[in-house]
Amino acid sequence: MRWRELPETLDPDARRLVQELRRLKDHNGLTLHMLQAKTPFSGSSWERYLNGKALPPTTAVEALAGLTNTAASPLLELRYAAQRSRAETECLPRKGVEASPSQQVSAPSDVPTASSTGPGKGQRHEQERREIHGVALSLVGGALLLSAVVAGWLIADRPASVGLPAVSATGVGRYHCTYVRHGELMLAGNSPTDADIVALNSTGPDVAEVQCLLRRHHLTPGDVDGYFGKRTEAQVKKLQQQDHVSPDGIVGERTWSLLRHVA
């Protein structure tokens, strides 16, 4: 089959991984329908993985390797490298990232961007990337420090009856959903994970991220409180059923991929 061009924003490790997966699929005469029938993943999920729209979970890589009698280790190494690259660049300003006006943050004018890198300047790309990364981390650190100072003032000086948003030591409380599109993935502002296991009675930011993303899929997990109760579990199962994934109510790599996918 004739494959479409991979996105230019795809990092080298992810690009090599997708190219290897495409080669294995074509060499063994597999179709998306066959992959859906022979693996736990739907045809639409495989379409996203093979066109670089979403990073395939390790179980998908292992499934394709098993179908084609190929060693999974080299493919998994590429997959882990691609995941590390994504984690390193998640906080960087990206062209094409969509957010509401209240959520958009402008980069400082003296920070170099991809569009300002002209011909003959390719050798400075890595240095510029590190500079941007440093600026982004400084901004995040400053915002966190400011939030901590304001929160301390509110708790000390406001009456208890005000009912301020708070998170307990167990990770349960009130969280906010701040949606930002990152390529073909959706982030909700509480956790960037795409692999941590979240299940019944889990607590913390990962759970809040699940609850926010469920709402993006028009499901109703209840309050975004960081507690994975029966209601959240039921909505996770509903999402899994919609995409023909075993409805076990557990959020792992496969279900994170469903939650973060931008339809």
Rank of each mutant, 00 (worst) to 15 (best):
Q83A: 15
L64E: 09
S246R: 13
M1I: 07
E233W: 01
T70N: 03
G171W: 12
A136F: 05
W153L: 14
S168F: 03
S115N: 04
L17S: 10
L75Y: 07
G189V: 10
A14F: 12
Y175V: 04
A71G: 03
W46T: 04
S147M: 04
K238I: 04
A169D: 13
R216A: 15
R94F: 08
T39C: 13
G222M: 09
D243Y: 12
S44Q: 12
Q83K: 02
R16N: 12
V162T: 13
K25R: 14
R86N: 06
W153H: 10
V140M: 08
H176D: 09
D194P: 03
E20G: 04
Q83F: 01
E126M: 10
T232N: 01
D225P: 08
Q36E: 15
K237P: 00
Q235W: 05
I250M: 09
Q104C: 10
Q235K: 08
L164C: 12
A151M: 00
R15I: 00
G43Y: 08
G52L: 07
E47G: 02
L154M: 14
S44E: 11
V262D: 05
R2V: 11
A72G: 01
T39I: 14
I250E: 05
R2E: 12
T113Q: 11
A107S: 15
A60E: 10
Y80M: 08
V140S: 04
W256H: 11
N51F: 02
D196F: 01
P56V: 14
L145Y: 09
A107T: 14
A72R: 06
A81L: 06
L259P: 10
R260A: 10
W46L: 06
R94M: 09
V105S: 05
T117M: 12
L24M: 06
P7M: 00
L78Q: 13
V198Y: 08
A63V: 06
A54V: 13
M186C: 11
P40Y: 02
N51P: 03
L187A: 10
L137F: 01
A234G: 02
H244E: 12
P205H: 07
H261K: 11
A160P: 02
E126Y: 10
E233I: 04
H182V: 04
Q241T: 02
P247Q: 05
Q19G: 09
T117C: 03
P57E: 08
H33G: 09
W3K: 06
N69F: 00
E184C: 05
Y80T: 12
E90M: 13
L144I: 14
R84G: 00
L32T: 03
S102W: 07
V262E: 06
